[in-house]
Amino acid sequence: MKVREIMTRDLTSVDPDTTVRELIYILDKSGLSSVPAVDEDGRVLGIVSERDIIEGAVPGYFELLHGSSFLPAVDQFSEKLKEIENDPVSLYMTRNATKIDEDDDDLAVADLMLHKNLKMLPVVNKDGLLVGMLRRIDLLKDLL
């Protein structure tokens, strides 16, 4: 089956100059944990996630979680977050993020998601424009 047949037909995305505060609002209200950042035509420039923002506020935060090093207190984290709230998300997004074509095969994409441990992939058409998102749950429903 082709990706276009199983993807979520949603174009929720942000401009690269969207602020961190606006991104948090969008993620909160939409229930998404990441969204693609797109240019003015809708070409995918990267993906920005909750994790990117946490890392932006406190670089190395997730490594600290796994080690015995000092973790910043929540109030310190809050201060750091406020310092970056008006920054554009382009500063923190993952550039060159993996994206897939709407005509890709579902099994090949499932393999890709499994190997790269990806939860969600932007789907583009032959012109490189965002046409939807493929979530792990879309694949699970498809493969059942």
């Binding site: 609002y25 209200k29 809708g42």
Partner: peptide, 15 residues
């Protein structure tokens, strides 16, 4: 904020 976000998306999609 939501209105601004809408206008950004609309301007992109209308093309």
């Amino acid at each position: 904020m939501a209105l601004r976000q809408f206008l950004q998306s609309y301007t992109r999609l209308v093309r």
